[in-house]
């Protein structure tokens, strides 16, 4: 498995660890769950599941298609921007719950980073799916 894919998978499991911890806290404090639901979704769905798909997809889809990925720098950019965006956004939700001023900036920065990563993934995998047989 390639370096970027391993980085994405490890980030996915780190996100899962944070999301699980949050989930366990929710079981003990239901009002906390209602307040931090967006952070829960960020870490578990945009974090664990999406990062896992990016990591496995960037490795496995080229092998399904029988063609390599064409843009190695874009692959590395996705591997860095996606986890950075998830953790920034998660921190932003936490800051918003605490009514901190940096919340909005963190949320937007995280969203932009994730959007860049998503765009990169779409280009990389879309090229393979649309390539002629």
């Amino acid at each position: 498995m390639t370096g970027p894919s391993r980085l994405l998978l490890r980030s996915a499991f780190l996100s899962l660890a944070c999301g699980l911890t949050l989930g366990v806290l929710f079981t003990l404090d239901r009002p906390l769950g209602a307040a931090l639901r967006p952070m829960h979704v960020e870490l578990n769905v945009w974090g664990f599941v999406t990062l896992m798909i990016y990591g496995v997809g960037l490795f496995i889809v080229p092998r399904f298609a029988g063609r390599p990925l064409r843009r190695p720098r874009l692959v590395r950019a996705v591997a860095i921007a996606a986890p950075a965006g998830v953790f920034l956004s998660a921190a932003g939700w936490l800051a918003a719950w605490q009514r901190m001023d940096i919340a909005r900036g963190a949320l937007l920065a995280g969203g932009i980073a994730q959007a860049v990563a998503a765009g990169g993934f779409i280009v990389l995998i879309g090229e393979l799916l649309l390539a002629r047989r």
């Binding site: 969203g111 993934f121 779409i122």
Partner: peptide, 17 residues
Amino acid sequence: LAALAGATALHVGVLAG
């Protein structure tokens, strides 16, 4: 991939408030 593009756009909207 199309759904990822759409969900990402909506996500940025949610994060913007």
